[in-house]
């Protein structure tokens, strides 16, 4: 299953919520959809889920257009919105049962399907609780269960980790890994970027409705981070090592972080190895020397920072 987003635009009056974005992802991939509040993530996801229509452009799932054939696309997509299920006077089981019926799951399979989803999402013990009595984390699980009820090949998840406690986040991460291993194509948005970088293979960073960066995590981190961060733990004096580092070529900045030195250098592996040998030559004892990869958080800050500078902020 390949999901293609083709030159998607969504304008609300004069506001360009989504402004000509294109990217694609396939089965088994988890793609992070990152952006500040109001960047256009939710609008894009709502269009993907056929809840909204684009002003221009289209979304295709294996060639099936979400604009022209939303009914077919609905069978293929499981959408988990950022809002939680608030249906009053409904139990968890009734809620899932309703959506199982709505997706035309026959009665002989329905009970088993609901049981499977409840056990996968850990809802078995609270199946008879009403929705409004649930905690936020449990509601997120119900929402995930609802999105999975018709076993869609594509999952679109808008802020699924928002408001979850650390344990629930870890569990969600595991669930997502399992879903990706099952071959589902997953587009996920979240503000918790460290978590996304642990599970996502690709990322799309969107800013003011336009794509700022898109690609595999390795690609975009190497492309967008001309600086390399080195973590150096000297065996001897921290200050002595810091002074030595500061004087070396390609070293732009050195900061003390705990018992380590964090050095930002221009260049990559070659420059890093030169720095190490220079330090050794100067007789600085090194207990630990490692190159830190760029991370989504700093990349995101870098991109959104550029945007702000561009706007004269």
């Amino acid at each position: 299953m390949e999901v293609k987003i083709n030159r998607l635009k969504r304008y609300f009056g004069l506001t360009r919520a989504v402004d000509d974005i294109s990217f694609s992802f396939s089965s088994g991939e988890i793609v992070a959809f990152i952006g500040s509040n109001g960047a256009g993530k939710t609008t894009t996801m709502r269009i993907l889920a056929t809840l909204d229509e684009p002003t221009e452009g289209d979304v295709e799932l294996d060639g099936v257009s979400a604009v022209n054939h939303p009914e077919q696309v609905r069978k293929l997509i499981g959408y988990m919105p950022d809002s939680l299920p608030t249906h009053r006077d409904m139990t968890v089981h009734e809620y899932l049962d309703f959506f199982a019926r709505a997706y035309s799951i026959p009665s002989e399979k329905r009970a088993q399907t609901i049981d499977d989803v409840q056990s996968f999402t850990g809802l078995g013990d609270i199946r008879n609780n009403t929705l409004h009595s649930l905690s936020k984390g449990m509601k997120q699980r119900v929402s995930l269960g609802r999105a999975l009820i018709h076993d869609p090949p594509v999952m679109v998840m808008d802020e699924p980790a928002a408001g979850l406690d650390p344990r629930a986040r870890i569990e969600l991460r595991e669930l997502l890994r399992i879903l990706a291993d099952q071959g589902k194509a997953i587009l996920i948005s979240s503000h918790i970027l460290t978590e996304l970088s642990e599970i996502c293979g690709g990322a799309v960073i969107i800013e003011k409705g336009k794509i700022a960066v898109a690609g595999t995590l390795d690609e975009i981190l190497s492309q967008q981070a001309p600086q390399t961060v080195l973590a150096v733990r000297p065996a001897g004096g921290l200050e002595e090592a810091r002074q030595a580092l500061m004087l070396l070529p390609n070293v732009e900045n050195v900061a003390v972080v705990g018992n380590e030195l964090e050095a930002r250098i221009s260049g990559g592996e070659e420059e890093a190895s030169q720095i190490l040998s220079e330090l050794m030559k100067q007789g600085i004892q090194i207990a630990e020397f490692k190159r830190r990869g760029g991370d989504l958080e700093s990349l995101f800050m870098q991109i959104t920072g550029k945007e702000d500078e561009g706007n004269g902020k």
Binding site: K4, I5, N6, R7, S22, F23, S24, F25, G28, E29, I30, V31, G57, A180, G201, G202, A203, V204, I211, A214, G215, T216, D218, E219
Partner: peptide, 10 residues
């Protein structure tokens, strides 16, 4: 037919 940017592997 329109071009799209392919996002990489999982």
């Amino acid at each position: 037919t329109r071009g799209t940017q392919k996002i990489g592997s999982a």
